[in-house]
Each structure stands twice: as C-alpha cells, then as structure tokens.
Design a protein around this nucleic acid. Sequence first.
DNA 1: GAGTGGTCTAGACCACGAA
DNA 2: TCGTGGTCTAGACCACTCG
Lengths: 259, 259
Amino acid sequence: MASGEAASTAKAKYQQIADDLASQIRTGVLAPGAAIPSEAELMERYGVASGTVRKAVAELRTTQLIETHHGRGSFVRSRPPVQRKSSDRFRRAHRLAGKAAYLAEAEQSGGKPSVNVLFVGPVDAPEEIAERLNVPVGSKVLARKRRYFRDGTPTEEATSYLPWDVVKDIPETFAENPGGGGIYARLEEHGHRLAEFTETVRARLATKAETAALALSPGSPVIHLVRDAITDAGRVVEVCDTVMAADQFVLDYRFPARD
Amino acid sequence: MASGEAASTAKAKYQQIADDLASQIRTGVLAPGAAIPSEAELMERYGVASGTVRKAVAELRTTQLIETHHGRGSFVRSRPPVQRKSSDRFRRAHRLAGKAAYLAEAEQSGGKPSVNVLFVGPVDAPEEIAERLNVPVGSKVLARKRRYFRDGTPTEEATSYLPWDVVKDIPETFAENPGGGGIYARLEEHGHRLAEFTETVRARLATKAETAALALSPGSPVIHLVRDAITDAGRVVEVCDTVMAADQFVLDYRFPARD
DNA sequence: GAGTGGTCTAGACCACGAA
DNA sequence: TCGTGGTCTAGACCACTCG
C-alpha cells in the first residue's frame, strides 16, 4: 500500500502540490478571498492520499498564502495595505492639535481605525517594566491596555504602564478616553514635559494568546515594541508595550549622523 | 484500526506530547544541545503511531524549541544571546576611531564577529533601491553584499547599494575591505558628509533562500531593515538592505519629542 | 445531514548520517 | 549496516459550519 516513490522524484509530492496552488494564487487564478478546492477534491485531482494533501495545505498556511477555517474551507488571504509607524508620530504639534498618535497614523493608511480599551487600573509592575520605570518590581503602577483595529480586524495590542505617583493627580489617565492628544498631552499639562522616546524593537513568532487576540494564523510573526517616554528631567513616565501583527506594519525611523 | 477518541479528549495527543517535551526542555530535563528521544522511542513511550509523534515534533520545531537534522535526530536549541542594534551605532566618533558599525556593536554582545564578502560589483538597480537612491530603475549602481557571522553561525545578510557617480572616484568602495571606519568613512572623506539616516523596519517569515543563507529553520521570522544614508546636501548616497535572524537581534532607537 | 477540515492509525519505502 | 528522520498510503472517526 505504501508508495516507494515517495522522495525519489526531485520534489516531494506535497511540495509540488503546494507550489502548484501557490502559483495559481500568485497569478490570480485563485483570487484573494476565494476558496481553494476542498481536500477531497485535491486528493482526487492530484491522485494522492489525504495526508499528502493536508501537508500541502499546511505548507500554504505557514507561508501565509491561505487561511483555513475548520468546517468551512481554506481561503486565499488578501493582504491588507500596511500601516506605517514613523518616529515622527509623537510630534508635539500633533498632540496640541488634539490628535492621538494612533489616529494621526492610521488615517494615512486608508482603513477605519478604532480602539477598544480592555483594562485600565492598578497592577503590580512586571519585571521588565519596573526596571524601565525605575520602580521596585511588583510595586503599584497604572496599566492601560487596549486593542487597536482597522476596518474591524485587530492589528495591535498595547499596554501602557505609568508610575502611580505620576498619575494619581491626573484623573483623566484613569478614564477610558484620556481626552484630546492622548495620555502624553495630559502628562505635559501636568508638568511632565516629554524630551525623548526610546523604542526597543524585536520580532518573533506570536504566542498562542497573541494568535487569538490578533486573529492571526499560528506561526505568524509579530513585532514587539517597547517604548519609554522620557521627560526633560530624565524620568521615564510611561512604558508602552506593544505587540503588532507583523504583516500589517512598517516602522520608520529617522536619526541624525551624530558626532 | 482508526481511533475514535482523536479529539474527544481535551487536547490532541500530539499537542500533549509536544507540551510534555516542551516542559522537559524548559525545566532543563532536556538541556540545550541534548538530543530528544527518537521517533521510534517516542512512539513506544506514548503508545501512539508515527504520524502523531511526527506532528508533535513538528510543533516543537515551529516553536523554535528544537532543530532536527535528517538522519541524526532532533536537538534542543540553545538560544544565543541577542545582539543589539542601536541608532547610536553610526556615530561619527566611531568612524573616526576606525571602527565599522557592525564591529562596534558585535563586540558588546560577546560573540566573535566575522564578515564574509559575497559580492562587490555593478548591478542594475532594483525598483525599491532605485527609488530610494533617486536614480532610474535598472541603472548601474555598486552593490556590496556580505554575510555576518557570530561565532561562526550566520546572523545577518546585508547588501549596500551606492550610486555609480558617487563611488567611481573612490577605489576603496570596490575593495572587499573598504578600510577603517567602513564605507561611511570613505564617503565622508570624499565630501559626502552624512547628515542623517532613515531606517525602515519590517518583520516577516524567512523566504527559502533566507532560510538557507542564515541557517534558519523553516518558518523562522526575520527582521528586514532598509537604511538610507543621507548627506548634508540631502542626497541618498547609500541604501543598505539587511535581513536578520529575528531571534538574534534587538533594535534600539532614540528620538526626540519633536515639536 | 452533507460537506468541510482535524486527528489518528499501522503500516510501507526512501534518504541521510555515523559507525 | 543500522538507526535516524522524511514521505506516503488508505483508510477511520471526530468536530465544526451551513443550509
């Protein structure tokens, strides 16, 4: 029953099938959003067993060409236009104009942006956050967790952490909507004038939780960005921890050729 | 012969096996570099068929916990310390001190850095490069392609593109080793004083070619970074296109809270 | 209920690596 | 040569989705 010609051909059958389907996708024979043939159909068409077809389909899934839904089928992915995140997005001028950074950005990229505040309240500072805020690990800080969407699909999840002594006199920081210009505008109004930001960028595969939260397929990459907001006085008054679907974002930075 | 209890338990068997092995790895029962039990061994130990074991092992591979070598076995991956890339790494002071950027960096992270020049010569400018250099698509530019290693393992592959009229009078730019301070030092000596850099950061899964070049496992994420070097005169005199193994790098940026 | 993907079996043969 | 992983078969039953 087994087949002896498994790997005797130049390429594995499952790979040939995957390549064939991939080229149909790239040439537009299978358009974005279209369903690819069912596994039963593919078994018959290529004359192989179910396992082989499944492996081919799995290949297309890991290369992000399709997404599959249990009980419905597999569908060609449509790649939404990317959103750019520029280091200019925190310009004070934007804040004074009453625009939050994410809005100033998302508007440029076509989609309808929206935010969902998931949590606002005190938490014990996790280790990496505490270090950056220069407070003891486990001490009380304000966390603001929200999820960003574009055209209804989640793209990004961000949690801001602020030292308790900084926010305790700023009631707006506890509100779902901190008002025009966002948190940074409120901080500046209360004497915390922002001098610079630092951002730390990593890329990795999404965890299971992130896969669920951002509606990713398993094995999708994410960009993990951690930003410190630093005042004139040299104090870190906010750490923002962000996880983004990697295929949705491009980050832009500009920096001088310093001496 | 088939098993009806496939998904009737809370979790799939292959997932349970994967989780079991993963916890053994994380608790150190299986140390970095150690071989995990062979598939035959796992089949017997867990009382499942080969396909199930293989799926469990595949799971560990995509979560980057192990790497497998045909004919030898699967081994627990040792995660090398990450290398940081800071936006400070192009400080002019470094160049004057004769240090190339990559050396100044890699030295801080412990490993022994090395470079392999893969190609130096004229090429037709690809589209995205030509746009950035502001030259016609397909016109002649100098390409310098090299691969970076740390402790002998490849981490990064970079290609620099420079306009032909800029490099034609700078013989060092055609040499494998452009001399102390690198290409940027040579450019500055010839009147192209660098004013600023822009970097564009993307993350995605590695292509097959990148998987091979950087010795990655399939499905590994990479960071794709494109940098423009811009002179006082506002001209882009170099575009550097870099692909990095995502698990080896952290990018650091610093930027002012501009008005 | 019909159709889809998801898990699993119990084998087979092939290709690679090390002894 | 022998043990390893890689590919493949020809089925089975289960879970999800939709009409």
